[in-house]
Structures are given as structure tokens and as C-alpha cells.
Nucleic acid binder design. Structure first.
Lengths: 237, 237, 237, 237
DNA sequence: TATGAATGAGGTTTCATTCAT
DNA sequence: CATGAATGAAACCTCATTCAT
């Protein structure tokens, strides 16, 4: 929670200009962090301003109300996350198993590890107070993401690589651990060091497990080409 | 989420007595529902009182502050959930696969479907504001639950029924969809009908998938004795 | 601007009860005084509360917003002022001249001299900011009052006591000085002692003048039976 | 109340020059309009600037504070209104009745109909918040105006044209309807079309009525030479 | 015990004013 | 001179908590 010191009296033009243009982004970032950390209602708008290095009044120069700020935070952190993913999926040439493993890991690097992952927690925690956001979220995030994962699973089934499972449920099984990791990162894991999970390990294990579960007997051997499956070893607790 | 009508003017003594004894439970239930629905900060203590059918002042006769109420809500909804589960696991005589399937489904019926599931969402949303709860939650819920599931997985591995996977990660893979379902139930699924998942189907699919992933080749055929594995059929979207 | 001292810690029941019932009236009175004195926008809601002897919060227990308070102030001070006047007019048995003189003087005593007269200034100053009040004001005050005065003038014309002037304009001529006195009372007259008018004298003079102007030659002599017309004397400045 | 469009990108020097010199007047006009319409406290200084076609900062280059702006608005709209009137009165050669009728009608044309009339409403509404203005207003407006009207009335009495009434009160009776019209114009009449009065008709009627009331029997017939007295006829409502 | 009127600290938002450009 | 981004005091309003009954 590094609080930036208040602006010195005189700021050179160049810097002022740069800051002005950066303001919206800085405010949105500060707001996202705080909303995720403390919840929307428990975050004071002045805190957001202070963390972004401006005064209370300045925040209201950019966003007309705290609620508008929330909506903008969501809108801003949602765009185009999916489009890019779609492209990657389309271009990928390997097996469905490889693609799934790749996509899940990539998502963690691009979203899970970044500040944007907080949006997930924010939505989980706050949608019920802002139901008009729900549909937007479904249309922009949930549906495209489902379609993308579903496409991969279908590709695997069609190519004989996966068992003919119910696609929708397989999608849930693949998405659930990502959500699990994000929630851990932004709740318990943020409070208690010992509760913190190792995301990459969990994802690898999940990929291993689910692919094992999805694959037909014939496809099994090549299951996880990228990284060797971790054996239980002594860490079993 | 039964909203009780305001008390009629004259309440027979017997009923009054009964209600008086039920007060704490009613207050805790009302508080849980509202905290889960709107978040702790966004819930007014008067709302809790009103939903429990008492006046604002009465709430403070039972709980000295809103924060104490929150803690009591959590404490109250956490006790004994685990002990019982442990007993069931110990007594179970079938295969590890059967036991896992049984435990997951049972948990959904006993917790997921009940008001108590909200505690999970509550913790996800609020721990960071009440870090002193975190350790309690870990000690009373996370650790025992992990140990319980881990015990089953280990039993399966030791008995040659499961591959020798990393137990901890397998536990996460098994728990994640439960969390996924609970979060869905209490966030998006509560706003948008079309986003609502069918929990039993998701759990079945998850059990199917993960057991497939866990089991050694030899154990495969009997995977899901209780219910037939759902085939993808035309529902694949 | 006598500020009542804050309530002592313990107030006996009887008094508490009495005060609670009196609250709305006390708040409306305080609000009226302050809105008239400083204007709506320049009056802080806490001032209203303090002048009524309660805290800020209490004000909001009775009126959900400052604007609602204003509307209630207006509504409350407008009712039934007119109905009573109508009755008096109907029952009056003397000449139209006498009735006019009587009604104008009575209005000053019943309204002009009381706190309620401030409503007039309030309306003058604030209607444009609350146009939805305008029609209410016209329907409840302006129109009935006009009809009442017009009735008297018509009675005088029909009875040959007054010249056949345009009734509507005569009404304006009769009402204007009342407004003039009210505005004086609540603006300049409230600031500068020397600017303060003697309302009764002004009304008498106005009655004298307008009746002289209205009356036919035949009716003249009895013009002002109640009080002798003031001669200019030396006070002419 | 001409709302000026925002300045085009490039303004020819000549025009810019002209505008620059006109700035103070434009700002004062905008301020007067807004203060009259919304009240001093409810008018934001940015609105004034915008209506005058300049930026917020520019306003402060001309007037050091909103309150100073108000005072300047008043001072500016008050000067010389009176001096001119005095001259007219001195030069007038007709009867006192004619002069009164002329002066009242002239005032309406020169002040009542113009933006400057708003100053009256502004004073009524705001003096109590700015008592230091009160004396200025009395000295510059009230007293001279009274003296002027009083002079005419006295001239009439001295010449045997008017009855020897109390001059001061006669002055009030003559001024009241002007105030009445101004208040109507700037309050109810500005909100509700049906409440709008016809100022010239009201003034004529008032002149008619009061002259009738003032004049001695001998002077009566010539009462209103300029315009025919309006008969009640069917318009009596 | 139960009530609900009252309180006032604290949050959201506005806006007069400043100042670097 | 003119601009408009930035400030922060101050206004409106909320709500956790108290307390007399």
C-alpha cells in the first residue's frame, strides 16, 4: 500500500502532461486494486484518489461517481482479453491436449498473474449489487471464454483424442481451478502466507489430471509433452 | 431466504418464548443471507434486524457490534461440518473412487445447497478486511477439509486404485469445482437465470473426469458405479 | 438567531414524548425561518436541525432530503389559509369597501405578521429552481386568493358601490401592497431598521387610496369608516 | 438572455479585441441573469463564465470572488438609473397626474422590461445575506426613487390636483405594483405561462386607480388623458 | 427484554478558488 | 490575458451505535 507523496507545488509541463494523460489509467488501477482488496463498499473514494496520487476532487473530474468508477474499472479490464485468445487457438497447430495446456498456462501468465485477475474476484463479490453489469460480464467474458475452451475440447473429441464427454461440463472442470487460484490469490492467499498456492504447479497438475481424464486410451502416452507430470514424491503431507 | 412478516401486535406467550430462544439463530441466518448477498460493508445492521423480525436495538442485545456479528456468523456456520465428514470417511467401506464421489455429492447436499454455503463466498469476499478470521478459517475448515480429501486420495494411491499423483494438487482439483459452484450460486447465478449451473451435473462430470484422470488403467471400468457417465451426445453446443 | 442549547442527557418521558410529536412542526418552523432568511441553497441542513434543537441525523429521520423538507415547508404553510378567508367573505354583511378593508387588514394580522408570510418570499425567491411547485402554488394560493378578492370587487361593482373597473387589475392593485410589505419585512426591512415600513399604516393608506379610486362619486363619503384617513400633515418628507 | 455560442477556433483580431473589451459587461450580464434565475448561492461560478463565453479562470481575472462579482453586478446595474429620472421629472411640464403616469410607464420600459429589473429580485432575495449592500441600495435606489415619486405627489397636492394624502404611503402604493410585476416576471411568471401578467395593462390600471384615488373631485375627469380607461366590460372573469 | 428515536462520525460529492502553462 | 486541471473545505446524507422507556 505504497502511498505516493502529494504532488510537489510545481510540476514541469512535460510531466504534468504525461500525468494528465495517464490519470484515467492510474485511477482505474488504483480503484481496481482497492475494490479487489477491500470490496467496493468498504473502499473510500478518497483512498482511490490518494493511491493514484491525486486529490479527492480530481477523481470526480474523471468519473462522476464511485459507482461509475466501478463500472469503468470493469469495462476497462475486460476488453479484448478474449479476442487475442481466440486468435491463438485458431492458429495453434498441435494436439488439443497441448493446446489446452498452453491456453491455461498462458491465461495464468496474461491474466491470473496480473492486476486484471482481480476483476474476477470483484465480479464474484459485487455482481449481486450491480445486476446490470451481470449481462455485460456474461456477454463479454463468460460466453466467449466458454466458447473458446469448448472449441478446443470439441476439436479433441472430433479428432479422437478425447473421450466424447459432455463438453460444457468439461469446460467447467477446466475453468474451475483458474477461478480457484484467482480467489485464493485475492482472498486467503493474500492474508496468510502459508495458504498461498503455487499457481503454476496447480495448473500443471490440473492439466495433467484433466487430460488424463479426457484422453482416450490411445492418446494417453503423449499426455503432457511440455512438462513432465509431477510425481507425488514426499510432498504428500 | 424467507422474509418473515412483521410481528403481529399480540403474540401468544408460547410463541414469543419460542421466538425468543430462536432469536440468535434467526439473527445469524438473516445476517448470513445479507452479508452473502450484499457484502458485509454494504449490509446495514437494521436490515439484518428487520429480516430477523426484530428491531435494530434488539440486534445489539445479542451481538455487541456488526463486526462481532460477522464473526459469530462465521464461527456458527463452520463448526462440526468437518468432524462429521471425517467420521463418514473413516466408516466408508467401498473403493476410494466411490468414496470420493460420495463425499463430493454429500458435501453439495449438506453444504452447497444450504444457506451455509454462503460462508464460502463471504470468506472469499471479506477475509482481507478481517485477517484475524483467516487463521481460524484455515484451522477449522481449510486444513481439515484438505486432510480429509487428501486421506481419500492417499487411500486410493496406496491401494493401487489411483496413479501416484501429487496429492495436494489432486485435492485442489477436487475442491475447485465445489468452490466454482458455490461462487456461481452466490454471484452470477443469482443475477442471471441463464448463468445458473446445474450443480449435480457439474459435480458428476467433475467426479467422472477426475476419477478418470486419477485412476490407474486397471481400475478404470468401474469408475462411476453410482450414476452412469453422461455422454456428450448432441448437447455439446 | 437564538440557538437552542443541546438537549440535556436525560429528558423525562413526558417531555420526550411531547417533543417527539412536536418535532415535525419545530423542524418545519426552523426550516421556514432559515430558508426565508438565507435562501434555500444557502441554508445548511445542519443549521435547520440545530435551530430546531436536534442533531443533523434527526432531521433526516423526518424528511428524506433537504428538498423534500422545502416542499413540506411549503405544503404545510399553505393549507387552509384560504378556506377560512372565503368563509369570512361570504358571511360579511357590510359594504364591499368595508369588506375589502377588513380582509386586507385581517390578512396582515393572520399571515403578514406571522412566520407564514415568509412562504411568500420563499416562493418568489425559489420557484424557478423548483418549477414543479409552481402549479401547486398557483392552484392552492394564487387562484383562490384572486377569486376571493375578485368576488369582493365584483360585489362592489354590482352593488353600484365601485366603478366598473377591470376586476383582474383591481385585484392586482389590492394584492401588490401586501406583497410589497411582505418582501420589505423579509428583505431590506430585516436588515436596516430605517427601511422598515409600518405595515398597518401602509395598508390603511392603500385601502384609502384604492377605495377612493374604486368608489363611485356617490359612495365616496363613507369611504373608510373604520379608521379616519390619515392626512399628510408634516410627516411628508 | 442570449446564450452565446462557444468561441470558434480562430477569431479575427478585431473581434477578439472587441470581445475582450466587452468581457466585463458580458460577465456581469451573465451573472445577473443567473443570480436572478437561480439565486446567488445556487449559481456556480463556472456557469457564469460559460454563459459569458469564457473559462472559469477568466472570470477570476476580472472579479476576485463570487461575492465581489455579485456586488459589482449590483453596483453596475444601479448607477444612473435614478439621475436620469430626476431630470425627466424636473423637465416635465404637464400635470402631476400625467407625470406620474408617464414616469411609471417609462420606468417599466427602461427597467422593468430589461435585464436590469432582475436586480430588484436579486436584492429582495439576497440582501439579508449581504447586509453591507443594504445601505448602498437604500442610498442609491430606494431613497432617490422615493424622493422622485414623492416630489411628483407633492407637486400634485400643492397644485390642488391631488388630495392632501400622506405622501409616503402614496409613494408605496405607486411603487408596490411595479415590484409586484417585477417579482412576477422573475418568479412564477417565468415558470408558468398562465401566471404571466401583462405589465402594461397592470400599470395602466394601477395608474388609473391610484390617480382616481389621489385626485380631488375637480381634477377627476381628465384622469388618464394618454390612454382610455379600460372598462370592466365582459372581461371581468 | 425489546424498542426506536436520537446521535454524530464519517462517507460521498460539489464547487469556489488557485496556478502552471 | 486565457485556460482548465487540480485542490480541499464544506455541504449533503448514511448508518452503526446508544439509551431512555
Amino acid at each position: 500500500m505504497t502511498l505516493r507523496a502529494p504532488l510537489p507545488a510545481a510540476v514541469p509541463t512535460a510531466l504534468r502532461q504525461r500525468r494528465k494523460e495517464a490519470r484515467p489509467q492510474e485511477l482505474l488501477d488504483a480503484a481496481l486494486d482497492l475494490f479487489v482488496e477491500k470490496g467496493f463498499a468498504a473502499t473510500r473514494s478518497e483512498e482511490v484518489a490518494t493511491r493514484a496520487g491525486v486529490s479527492k476532487g480530481t477523481l470526480y473530474l474523471y468519473y462522476p461517481s464511485k459507482e461509475d468508477l466501478l463500472k469503468e474499472v470493469i469495462r476497462h479490464n475486460v476488453v479484448n482479453q478474449i479476442a487475442e485468445g481466440m486468435e491463438i487457438v485458431r492458429a495453434f497447430e498441435g494436439s488439443a491436449s497441448e493446446l489446452l495446456a498452453y491456453v491455461l498456462r498462458l491465461w495464468w501468465e496474461r491474466v491470473g498473474e496480473t492486476r486484471a485477475s482481480g476483476i474476477l474476484k470483484l465480479m464474484m463479490s459485487e455482481v449481486r449489487n450491480f445486476p446490470e453489469i451481470a449481462q455485460f460480464w456474461i456477454d463479454e467474458v463468460i460466453s466467449p471464454a466458454h466458447r473458446m475452451i469448448a472449441g478446443i475440447v470439441e476439436r479433441g473429441i472430433d479428432g479422437g483424442e478425447f473421450r466424447p464427454v459432455n463438453v460444457e461440463n468439461a469446460v467447467h472442470a477446466l475453468i474451475a481451478p483458474l477461478l480457484f487460484l484467482v480467489m485464493n490469490k485475492h482472498s486467503l492467499g493474500a492474508c496468510v502466507a502459508s495458504a498461498r498456492l503455487d499457481p503454476k504447479a496447480v495448473i500443471d497438475a490440473q492439466v495433467d489430471l484433466v487430460l488424463h481424464g479426457l484422453q482416450t486410451a490411445a492418446a494417453k502416452p503423449e499426455a503432457l509433452p511440455a512438462r513432465p507430470a509431477r510425481k507425488a514424491a514426499g510432498s504428500r503431507r
